[in-house]
Amino acid sequence: MARATKMKYGFPIILFIWLYLDGIIGAAFQPQLFHYPYAMSSYLVVLWLVFTVLFEGPHNNHLEIWAAIVGCVFDLYYTGILGVFVFVFPIVVLVTKVGYREFPVSFLSGLLIVFIDITIVTFASFVANMVTHLTSASVADMLVYSLGPTLAYNLAAFVILYYPIQRLFDWMSS
């Protein structure tokens, strides 16, 4: 009972805290994160979704719905363009679940899955901004300016957060 309660209320609360931290970290470290010629976007909320699949297993069917909800908030509150992350975040969860089934779960396979997920998110964000004429950058620009630094930032965050969050999940499911 205690396990179910901790997970039931802990998961969404922490999900939204990561969502807020993405924006707050961006605002607090603007000169470091968004300094031309690189732009690192913080997608800690995506990491939290990946961690949930990795540590809780792929059988949680509510996860896609939570991903869609948090994607909707991300779209409306941060970008103002609805219809991008509301679909991309559930796709990320599905991809992670496929990865979970295909690879043995370990630190390294988690790193690989995050690599794929962040690439998907960055590409989707670029395509959406291009379609809506919010940017005129080319794909080559995008790879160097956005994808590389964003991957570096989020993979580093994954490495730092892996063991603390594993402990957190152990505690939440104890």
Partner: peptide, 15 residues
Amino acid sequence: TVIARTPSSWQDQVV
């Protein structure tokens, strides 16, 4: 006060 920055490389936007 700025409370957040859009986590996107393409929109230089703050809240």
